[in-house]
Design a binder for these strands. Structure first.
Lengths: 138, 138
DNA sequence: CTGCACCCTGTAGTAACTACAGGGTCAACA
DNA sequence: TGTTGACCCTGTAGTTACTACAGGGTGCAG
C-alpha cells in the first residue's frame, strides 16, 4: 500500500484501537465508510486518522459514544458551537469532580483500615461499616 | 411492613439503586437472598442496606463487580489473619491510587478545555484539534 | 507456489445493568 | 366489600461499547 493510503491495521497501530473496534465505529457511523482497494480492503487517509484519534481520546476522557458523536457533529459544522462544547465538557467535569472526592474518601478509609489491620487488631476490619454511610447519594 | 423490615423499594430509594439492579445483584450473588414475606416479597434488614450502600459506592468509584466481591470478602472473612487482609487491602489501595491519578489528569484536561472554550473568542475554538493530537496513547 | 500475516463479513459473547411483559399483593378509599 | 393504584414477582430481551471467533479471501516474501 503506497502513498498516503492506510490499511485498517495501520490505523489500529497508530491509534491503539483494535481493528474490530474501528469496524464497529464505522458500523455505528462514527467513522465514515472509507474507499476500498481492488481487493476490498478499507483504504483510509490522514483525516480518518485524525478523526479516530479524536474519538479515542474523548473516550479515554470518559465521554460516551453519543457525546463523542455530538462533539464530532459540532466540529464538522465549523460554526461557532463553542458554547455547546463547553456545556458538554462542564457537565463531564462536574461528574469527574464528584468521583474524585469520593475516591479520595475511599483512599483515606482504605488507608486507615490497613493501619488498623497492620497493628494486629484482628476482627476489627469492618470495611463495610466504614465505607457504607447510610447517606444515599444521587 | 412494620419494624425493621425493608422492601426492595425501600432499599432502592435509600441507596438510589434501581429495583432491577438489586435483584440482579442477588442473582449474581453479591447480595444474599433475603427472607420472604407471606406474599413472597423480599424482606430486607439493616445489614442488607449497609451492604448495598457499600456496593453502590464502590461501583460508583469505578470498581468492577469482581473487585467489589473481593472487597466484600475482606469484611465477610473476619476470622482471617490480619496479615492476609492487609495484603488485599494494600492491593486495592494501589488500585485506588491509580484511579485517583487518572481522574486528576482527566480533570486537568477537561478544565483546560473549558477555559479555552468557554472564555475563548467565539470562532477560535479548536477543541477538536486540541483533543486529537497525532500522538497515539497506549 | 506456498506460507503467513493481514484483510473481509457475520454472528455471538462480555459486563453491568435496564426495560418490558404478564401477572400477583396490599393498603386505602368509597 | 369491592376496586383502584402503587408496589412486588419471575423471566426474558435490550442496551452500551466493545471483543472474540468462524470461515473465508488477499498480498507479498522466499
Amino acid at each position: 500500500m503506497s502513498s498516503g493510503v492506510l490499511t485498517i491495521g495501520d490505523l489500529s497501530k497508530a491509534t491503539g484501537t483494535k481493528v474490530e473496534t474501528i469496524r464497529y465505529y464505522e458500523r455505528i457511523g462514527l467513522l465514515p465508510a472509507p474507499d476500498r482497494t481492488s481487493g476490498n480492503y478499507r483504504a483510509y487517509g490522514k483525516s480518518d486518522l485524525g478523526r479516530l484519534s479524536f474519538i479515542r481520546r474523548a473516550r479515554d476522557l470518559g465521554f460516551g459514544l453519543e457525546q463523542v458523536r455530538e462533539l464530532l457533529g459540532l466540529s464538522d459544522q465549523k460554526q461557532r458551537s463553542c458554547e455547546a462544547v463547553d456545556v458538554i465538557a462542564r457537565d463531564h467535569l462536574a461528574d469527574v469532580d464528584r468521583k474524585l472526592a469520593d475516591l479520595k474518601a475511599l483512599r483515606r478509609e482504605l488507608d486507615s483500615i490497613i493501619r488498623r489491620c497492620g497493628r494486629g487488631t484482628i476482627g476489627e476490619c469492618r470495611i463495610i461499616e466504614a465505607l457504607a454511610p447510610i447517606d444515599p447519594r444521587h
